[in-house]
Design a protein around this nucleic acid. Structure first.
Lengths: 385, 385
DNA sequence: TTGTAGGCGTTATCAA
DNA sequence: TTGATAACGCCTACAA
């Protein structure tokens, strides 16, 4: 029974800790000890082990290690779609800070579909990830998901979207105030008939962005005309259709709740033959480095995407390390970036803006943020950090 | 020795196959058999096992499974930077087809740095991925990497960039012909003094794009003026600097070898006060769905990014399944997308274009591809497939 | 300081 | 068809 560990001829597969031990004429314990620096090992033996490792080109099997130690040093991350330009930066934030802490990440795309989300949740759990970062689909937590997430103690933190009935940590951007700023900016520029292309109202930040906008209208004593508000789904196509229905009503300005929809909206405007900002002002939500390079240069609410990833990872890692306490929601502050699509300079020139209306918040929208952002390109926006 | 498997109280951690076996009063073999459908099991036992699984909310431990089966059904993918808009779609292509085949993917960012690349290669190997998809950094394969990749039989397939001295499968886009088309298009429009902002020349596709461009000049009997060519590194900043040095020389047109650099280039043009396409024509490399929505609407060479991911995964999966044979290089065809930055309509109007110059290839550049692309937004460009 | 041997949760072989 | 039981490769008491 003791000789059973004479072990395989090592030609069969990759070298194991036993092969190293044999070659160095030590026990597996010693090998393990030097690899993990978990115990003091005499220099002599250590040397022998190290050279054996080199000679064999030994590489520890992380599967076995994880199995034995019961944690994988891996976190799972589920986003709707990595090819939606909104998510790469979040993911990058996650990976950077995870790697920094010695964790690696497993990426999944849910396509915003409950079914895929469930499936991936199962997979991640089966792979025994230590924690999960999740941008929930628009659907509420299903019973299955609830069971999945409850009967295991794998910590989950939500990103960008909260989920009613799912009381867990979350890191989001302050979309309410962001949208408020967007609406307020438009109002201060003297626009009175302002339209809205909102995100899906069954998503927390879709609601928040609409409510913030409405609040701004109210704060500036502007009527809120439901006929000027159309609900989109954050996708290009819905922005396009929104433009087709909204633009003919001749709004003076419009707030579009994300970049993809803005993209579609502009396309519609072009087809209809309306120009921005000449024929209508526009503020978009979420910023990208290339937005300052093409026309109309978009005025936006910049969301700290990378930071969302970083913060979410930070919280998750703490939970993994055993932090207890009630779930927390961390809210990151977005920022108004004034360029030209809002018609800023136009309105100023025409003296239509109303600087007398009090600026809400500490932001002075009359200081255009037009300077070139130094990005290193490959690492795109991260230099903002 | 036989009773040793009475096993833990199951409160300690997640239920194992033993817990299921015990509860169903069967052996672990039976449980394993029903889970994997690997053997015939009588309905009676199967039922018992299935209900036990439900009741315990048992979830197989993939770590243990992988350890025993010696494969993980996981592939690693290393790209320079997921937050560079070029890569998300490739990654998406990979994930989709991998998942389709029952594989999951592990994403890593090398930041185009040899060091991180090596580090991640080690990690992936330690995690025992079944194969690796790699977009090599600009540096050549290091001795370490060579050893890493050789002494293990984990198949590797290169994406987008080949690597001299590293003879393995690869899936790339035909950048030579893409760049040729770009240059030829400009030449046919009657431009004579054409500048180039190339990618890094130590990257295979950086070279290819330059050479294709030069070939086009030659084909159209245009002189190639080295002073009009500047080498960038694919990043925004380098495009910006290139613009600053190139534009004052008043080129009639310019070919910029990727999107990020184009972005910087446009910024420079704006600062200098030159307008596109009025003051200079421009063709960019690599297309994005939003390019048709802002001005100047970029004329580009569209790269089938998603397909690169799909094809690469396909090859890799075959290798994993044991396909032998010499390494192959699959080359995907890019496509000229004519919009307005090249000055197409301007030149036509002014009668400066030279339609008499033979069109090279089957592409007719005088058919502007301006129609709205139907994208579903969240899944962005993938609808092109 | 070093070694021995059992356990982590599966699969797989060989009997029964 | 089922059941024991030995791998898989690593960690870690417990001993020495």
């Amino acid at each position: 029974m003791s000789a059973k560990r004479v072990r395989r001829a090592s030609k069969t597969s990759l070298p194991s800790i036993y092969d190293v031990a044999e070659r160095a004429s030590v026990s597996v314990f010693t090998v393990s000890a030097v690899i993990n620096k978990s115990h003091q090992v005499s220099v002599r033996l250590r040397r022998r082990v190290e050279t054996a490792i080199k000679e064999l080109d030994y590489r520890p099997n992380l599967l076995a290690r994880s199995l034995a130690k019961r944690h994988t040093h891996t976190i799972g991350i589920i986003v709707p779609d990595i090819s939606n330009p909104f998510f790469p930066l979040i993911v990058r934030g996650v990976e950077d800070s995870a790697q920094n802490a010695g964790y690696s990440t497993f990426l999944c795309n849910s396509d915003d579909r409950q079914e895929k989300e469930e499936q991936y949740l199962e997979l991640l759990l089966s792979k025994r990830v230590d924690g999960i970062l999740l941008t929930k689909t628009h659907e509420p937590l299903s019973p299955v998901q609830r069971r999945i997430l409850s009967d295991t103690k794998v910590p989950v933190v939500l990103m960008m979207r909260t989920c009613r009935g799912f009381n867990t940590d979350a890191v989001v951007t302050d979309d309410f105030h962001g949208a408020f700023e967007a609406g307020a900016h438009l109002a201060r520029l003297g626009y009175q008939k302002i339209g809205l292309v909102s995100g899906p109202l069954d998503v927390s930040n879709g609601r928040a962005r609409k409510q913030g906008f409405l609040k701004a209208l109210k704060a500036h004593h502007l009527p809120s005309d439901e006929s000027l508000m159309v609900e989109g789904d954050y996708r290009v196509e819905s922005g396009y259709r929104a433009g087709l229905t909204l633009l003919p009503k001749r709004p003076q300005a419009v707030f579009v709740a994300n970049y993809l929809m803005t993209t579609g909206f502009m396309k519609a405007a072009e087809e209809i033959g309306m120009r921005c900002p000449d024929d209508f002002g526009l503020v978009s939500f979420d910023d990208y480095p290339w937005l300052g390079c093409f026309h109309p240069r978009l005025t936006t609410i910049d969301l700290p995407k990378y930071e969302v990833g970083v913060e979410a990872t930070c919280v998750l890692l703490q939970r993994i390390k055993g932090m207890t306490g009630r779930p927390t929601v961390r809210t990151l502050t977005p920022q108004l970036v004034v360029r030209e699509s809002c018609g800023f300079s136009l309105r100023i020139k025409e003296n239509r803006a109303k600087p007398e209306v009090a600026t809400v918040g500490d932001q002075n929208p009359f200081v255009p943020v037009l300077q070139f952002r130094e990005n290193d390109g490959n690492n795109l926006e991260r230099t903002k950090i």
